[in-house]
C-alpha cells in the first residue's frame, strides 16, 4: 500500500513538473533569428542521434551494451549538440527570459546531485548504470557552465559598446 502511495505521489509530482515546464515554455519568446538557429540545431541534434544509434548498433555485435545505455547515449549526445549550438548562437534562452543565471546555477546543483547521489549510496560508478547517471549529470553541468560563460561574454560585449 505504501509503495502504491509513493508511486502515486511521484507520478503526480512528475506530471506537475511537466505541466509547469510546458506552460513556462509557452511564455518564452524567440525572435526569427533564434527560431532559425533552433531549427538548425534540431537538425544537427537529430543527425547526431542517428549516427550514434548506428554506431551503437554496430558495436553491440561485439560487446554487450545495456539497453538503457544504448538509448541514453544517443539521446544525451543529440541534446548536447542541440544545446551547445543554441547557446553559442544566443538562441538557448528566449529574449524575454530573466533569471537565466539562477536557472543555470540550479541546473549545475542538480547535475552534481545526480552524479554524487549514487556515490553516497555506495553504488559503483563504473557499472553501466553508473555511467548512464554520470553522462546525464555531466550533460547538465556542462550545458549550464557553457551558458554562464556565454552570458558573461555577452555582458562584456554590452559593456564594451
Amino acid at each position: 500500500m505504501s509503495n502504491t502511495i509513493f508511486w502515486a505521489i511521484l507520478l503526480t509530482c512528475l506530471l506537475a513538473m511537466g505541466a509547469a515546464i510546458y506552460y513556462a515554455s509557452k511564455k518564452r519568446k524567440f525572435d526569427e533569428r533564434q527560431e532559425m538557429i533552433r531549427l538548425r540545431s534540431y537538425k544537427y541534434g537529430f543527425s547526431t542521434m542517428a549516427i550514434l544509434a548506428v554506431i551503437i548498433l554496430f558495436l553491440s555485435e561485439f560487446i554487450k551494451i545495456p539497453i538503457a545505455l544504448a538509448i541514453i547515449i544517443p539521446l544525451v549526445a543529440s541534446l548536447w549538440v542541440m544545446c551547445i549550438y543554441d547557446i553559442l548562437h544566443s538562441a538557448y534562452f528566449g529574449f524575454n527570459e530573466k533569471n537565466t543565471k539562477v536557472t543555470n546555477w540550479l541546473t549545475i546543483v542538480w547535475g552534481l546531485w545526480i552524479i554524487l547521489d549514487p556515490i553516497t549510496e555506495g553504488q559503483a560508478i563504473l557499472s553501466w548504470e553508473g555511467i548512464a547517471t554520470l553522462v546525464v549529470g555531466l550533460f547538465l553541468i556542462s550545458i549550464s557552465i557553457l551558458s554562464l560563460y556565454q552570458l558573461h561574454r555577452e555582458h562584456k560585449e554590452d559593456a564594451a559598446k
Binding site: 519568446k29 525572435d31 526569427e32 533569428r33 533564434q34 548562437h89 544566443s90 529574449f95 555577452e154 560585449e157 554590452d158 559598446k161
Partner: peptide
C-alpha cells in the same frame, strides 16, 4: 542602445548586433 532598439521591436539584442555586423 542595441538593447533598447531590441526591446522596442521585440527581438533579442544579439539579433540587432548580428544585423549590424552583417551576420544575419
Amino acid at each position: 542602445s542595441q538593447q533598447e532598439l531590441a526591446d522596442q521591436i521585440d527581438v533579442s539584442r544579439q539579433t540587432i548586433s548580428a544585423i549590424e555586423k552583417g551576420n544575419y
